[in-house]
């Protein structure tokens, strides 16, 4: 019995550790830039591809990532697009939309490499309206760097972790488009059974 009890404790501890480490790791994906603003920044080598090819692929990605916003071309081979994503509060049982975070995605290409930066994160909190929907509170905007001035450390860490996860997922998706890997699901063979032979 003591062995089982210890195993249960060990299991519980490992799960807790895993969850906290995942959240912490996602939060740490974000870095501070020169202006002390949160940023997710990567430089990716892409041997064999020209700046123009990478630009076209990046432009296509920017269009589908934020279909409501037309990407801007500020300098040669650079794209800027703006978007937003939802962040959630609470555990899986009472999980709900806590707000939205707007961001700017900057992609720039050169021959055989590209870089991207996700920055300008601004949190807009949600509140439940009279119809039971979570909606943005008008006029309230909190830069991600100032989250702790308005919210508890736990809430701020939760939103930072979700921002890190979003940036990582966006980076992975961009990489797929730059690599031009087909993201369409492979059609799985339909399993058929021969009912005439038995």
């Amino acid at each position: 019995m003591a062995y089982l009890y210890n195993m249960k404790k060990l299991l519980f501890g490992l799960v807790c550790l895993m969850c906290s480490q995942t959240a912490s790791a996602q939060k740490e994906l974000l870095q501070f830039d020169e202006a002390n603003k949160y940023v997710y920044y990567q430089v990716v080598d892409k041997p064999g591809l020209t700046a123009d090819t990478l630009y076209q692929r990046g432009l296509y990605f920017a269009k589908i990532a934020n279909p409501k916003n037309k990407p801007e071309n500020v300098v040669a081979n650079a794209i800027i697009t703006k978007g937003k994503f939802l962040v959630y509060t609470g555990s899986s049982v009472v999980k709900k939309e806590g707000g939205e975070i707007s961001y700017t995605l900057f992609i720039e290409t050169k021959d055989q490499k590209y870089r991207y930066k996700i920055s300008d994160f601004v949190f807009t909190p949600y509140k439940r309206d009279r119809f039971g929907n979570m909606t943005a509170i008008p006029g309230v905007e909190v830069p991600l760097e100032k989250l702790t001035s308005k919210y508890s450390q736990k809430e701020a860490d939760n939103y930072l972790a979700q921002t890190g996860a979003f940036c990582q997922a966006t980076g992975n998706s961009l990489k797929q488009h730059m690599d031009k890997v087909s993201i369409a699901r492979k059609a799985e063979p339909i399993k058929k059974v021969a009912t005439d032979k038995w």
């Binding site: 009472v94 999980k95 709900k96 979570m134």
Partner: peptide, 8 residues
């Protein structure tokens, strides 16, 4: 994914 079932 679709948003989860929201309980509030």
């Amino acid at each position: 994914a679709d948003p989860p079932l929201m309980i509030s």
